[in-house]
Write a protein that binds this DNA or RNA. Structure first.
Lengths: 213, 213, 213, 213
DNA sequence: GATGAATGAGAATTCATTCAT
DNA sequence: TATGAATGAATTCTCATTCAT
């Protein structure tokens, strides 16, 4: 899998360890604020404060406010991907696909704040930064595609490219959907319900609910 | 069906016909701008200019910038819902459900600008206005639910409430998805491809693609 | 004489009369401030305040702080040039050249604040604006050149181009010198002394002070 | 001749040799930067970097940014004065005056960067430091005065104090003028042309170009 | 002596909103 | 009703200076 070359954000501070640490503080603070008020309504001073340092220090580690957003999105994707590694991609059984979906949905549930932020604010990234983030998304979609293709290789499924591709997207979006439509879903489902029902629909298809009149 | 009581936006001008006309100009201009630069990066002056009148006049028809966003979202939902009326909700066959989905996806395709705007900017609505918009969304989800329930009433399907509800949400989200993931989907699908493949997956379910080893 | 095409500074306000008036207020205030603290140490808020309006209003009439500097320089040159029109350029006698010099030096004396500002701050203009100002300077140098050439046409002088050119520059610089070396000159000379002695040196030349040993 | 008592700039570092060395590095870097962007647009970090050490170290050798400007101006004057020492001040002939002027103009040509910086930025010195620099300027003007007076003592010239004083200033300013009006002069003159024509005008005077009609 | 991370006052600029005409 | 000039709070970003290591 081709790995996305990192888009670097300029820091005035040289100590790499320090940069990493400060940026983590920054990201943690920013996620909380972005979730609460959105990127545009959050000020750089608030970000600095939430991160626990001064506005001047903030700007030692980034160049523009948008850099914060990029770092946040980048970090979230990395976290999601990292956690997704636990998934067994190679088994090649429908069961393992189900498990993968469940695993992914759980992650989306646990990282709901982050996912929501990234989901809603990524569009504010500049034309410059957006592609990096979108590429990461495609990589994640690709993980589901890989699982599905393993099933096909294994003789468990027969499916053409278009269906594979869209199915992967659907799974990916349904994971995010648990975050961005929580306002509507959380009334009726726990995450486990959601996983169960969503998996049912995904695997069984409407026609299976057909009655023979 | 409980109809959403309209949340009114205050206008200084009395002539209702005039208010409606001016607001339509405003909405048209705003949609174009919001799509291009987002709500936050669009200024009230730009909205006024795009609408064809002065900033002073703009404020004769709204109270705050957020009112414009509300009017935009409100109007988009109304348009979508209006166009959705053509759907035959009562037939109660799987075929009519398929047609309904296709119809809805087509609308989403034709109104992609508006849908994208509403989809990305609605979150900027105040806690005050958001519920009105969300309620409209639920109404639209409800339309699919209705169609599905007709099928059940008709003996074409057997499905419990949870599955019905989530299926409706899925259909709704997949319609929006054609708008907000266009960057990834448009490379591989026309809207007709999208409708076909999406319908396949929705109706058939993964297990139908299973081979008997 | 080729006239410099005006470099325009953008104003949001449309009423041209108002723009002219507000800019004059602005220029008056800015000259005083620039003289006292220089361009860089003067803030836009101070300029607005000195002009008698708010910072927001200031920015209705300019786009950047540098625009103020340009307007100031531009205006000063225009004033100098306008006042210089009174000079009789066409007479073509050495006497009229003397009168022209005296006239110019007097103007430099009366406009000492403005001249100093323009003289010291013009270099802060962007690469974009500087040429316009420099061109105006050359126009003024050209006025002296014209006077001198009239004398030559008139048969009062014989002088080649290089000498004419540099003589014009010298006169021009000596006028400014009364402004920018006031700290050294004002101790020993009134403006009338300055005119007299400077004219002596210019017309007579060192060698005329030679004694025949 | 009364010598200017040095205004000292505080250094935390004790080793005088080191202080001198570091400050020379600093001045060299600063002159280049000031020429390019002016004093105000140059940051202390840039100065430190250009000097080859850290911002912290910079502040071991100065107290404020303005100290750098003072050191720069001071150093430039010292250099000019030192190079001017080669001039034969005592000969007391018009020829030696001419040579002195040519020598001075050549120095101004060779040190054009430095002269321009000092010329344009000296005004940014505080009320505190400015007098020291101005005094140095007067000393240099005084060198020309001395030469002229020698000529008078020698019986080569007859001239009163006012004329002597202003003539010295004129010579001094014309030297600087080669630097600050280079944009206009360099098109038509080499430094040698400039020396020749300027000397002609200075010695001969306009009236000598008079024709007998 | 040297370093460079931290600081926060200060600066330019924007823009939603008002209100007199 | 329509206009658009005026306002100033709010925002991003910079940079001289300090001080712990």
């Amino acid at each position: 899998m081709v790995v996305n070359k990192k888009r670097t954000v300029h820091a005035s501070v040289k100590d790499e360890r320090l940069v990493k640490m400060r940026r983590n503080q920054m990201i943690r603070g920013a996620v909380a604020l972005f979730k609460q008020k959105g990127f545009h309504r959050t000020t750089t001073r608030e970000i600095a404060q939430a991160a626990g340092f001064s506005i001047g220090t903030l700007y030692e580690y980034i160049r523009t406010k948008e850099d914060v957003l990029y770092l946040v999105c980048d970090s979230i994707y990395d976290q999601v991907r990292e956690r997704l590694q636990g998934m067994d991609v190679d088994k090649g059984t429908l069961e393992s696909l189900k498990l993968g979906i469940a695993h992914y949905f759980k992650i989306m549930d646990e990282m709901q704040d982050e996912v929501l932020v990234m989901y809603q604010e990524a569009k504010s990234l500049s034309k410059d930064a957006l592609p990096y983030v979108l590429k990461k998304e495609l990589e994640m979609v690709g993980m589901f595609e890989t699982i599905i293709r393993r099933c096909i290789d294994n003789g468990e499924l027969v499916m053409d490219d278009e269906h594979i591709d869209l199915l992967s997207h659907n799974i990916f979006v349904q994971g995010q959907m648990w975050g961005f439509r929580r306002w509507a879903l959380a009334k009726n489902y726990t995450i486990d319900d959601y996983i169960k029902v969503q998996t049912d629909l995904l695997f069984t298809g409407i026609e299976q609910y057909q009655t023979q009149l």
